[in-house]
């Protein structure tokens, strides 16, 4: 077999493998969306049908009228947006400072930042809950945000980018040119960090959008649920209304998919930068 033919065969096998994996990943999603359009009877058919025989909008209608789904999405969106803004701002500032002003005290603070990354959120979630409660912030976006203003990984990511891509001479040139430190940060440093900051923003947004444990303990009133908490609510102790849950989940996916399509590049960058994602 010639080298070319062999390469073609390898490529073909790779394509087939990836295609199969892709189908495996997509099937549950397709099934979920399909379930949203099924009648309760068809829901129980075995094997499950991939395309509903008798599609209905009843489930969606019910979800939107009987639960505050839109409100939940709005809550989640507001929470995710504010968290993103806060994380981008704190990471940019702190990452720049620990990257470019390596005094001993600052290095120690940076190590403390990093140390927080190895303590799981669940460990201090409960004490944090009591503090939030004492502050009277339960059931408010403010309370939700408390755990999501700073991201130690974000600080680390920006610090690495600052060190790798902003030479000292650039800042020194600006100082000689007469720029103040804030001016330098705003007009020289931030523009140069646009790429990593966008990647971080996507990461931060989805971290908040998919947050579950913290919102479920902070948000106790049905109207103030985030979408993740709201979805879990379909599943009560005794019953699961599968068709309603499917319809709600399918509706919730719309903004995520939309965001992914629009921000695909940043998204990939963000995941590549973090080198981790379940």
């Amino acid at each position: 077999m010639s080298a070319k033919a062999r390469a073609r065969r390898t490529n073909f096998l790779l394509d087939v493998t990836l295609f199969v994996i892709c189908i495996l990943l997509l099937t549950p999603l397709i099934l979920l969306i399909a379930n949203g359009f099924k009648t309760p009877q068809e829901m129980l058919v075995w094997p499950p049908t991939l395309f509903p025989k008798d599609p209905t909008l009843e489930n969606f209608h019910k979800v939107f009228t009987e639960t505050p789904l839109l409100q939940w999405m709005l809550n989640s969106f507001l929470f995710a947006l504010l968290s993103t803004v806060a994380i981008v701002a704190t990471s940019a500032l702190a990452g720049y400072i620990v990257g470019k002003f390596p005094f001993r005290a600052i290095n120690i603070i940076f190590i403390l930042f990093l140390a927080t990354a190895i303590i799981p959120f669940e460990v201090y979630m409960i004490p944090l809950y009591f503090q939030v409660k004492a502050l009277g912030l339960l059931n408010s976006v403010g309370g939700l945000l408390v755990g999501y203003l700073v991201m130690s990984f974000g600080i680390f990511l920006i610090r690495q980018n600052v060190i790798a891509s902003i030479p000292d001479e650039l800042l020194e040139a600006a100082r000689i040119d007469g720029a103040g430190e804030l001016w330098i940060f705003w007009y020289v440093v931030l523009p140069l960090l646009r790429g990593p900051l966008a990647a971080l923003a996507v990461l931060a947004f989805f971290q908040a959008w998919t947050a579950f444990a913290w919102p479920i303990i902070v948000m106790t009133r049905k109207k103030s649920f985030t979408i993740e908490v709201g979805l879990a609510n379909f599943q009560s102790a005794y019953t699961v209304d599968l068709s309603l849950l499917s319809a709600a989940s399918a509706a919730v996916m719309v903004p995520s998919v939309l965001a992914f399509v629009l921000l695909r590049r940043n998204f990939v960058e963000g995941i590549a930068a973090s080198g981790m994602k379940e």
Binding site: P167, E169, L170, E172, A173, A174, R175, I176, D177, G178, A179, V188, P191, L192
Partner: peptide, 19 residues
Amino acid sequence: EPKNRNIAMVFQNYALYPH
């Protein structure tokens, strides 16, 4: 302060603002 010394410096790596 550097900015009040009325000097200009040219660096080895030029230090042009990339953006």
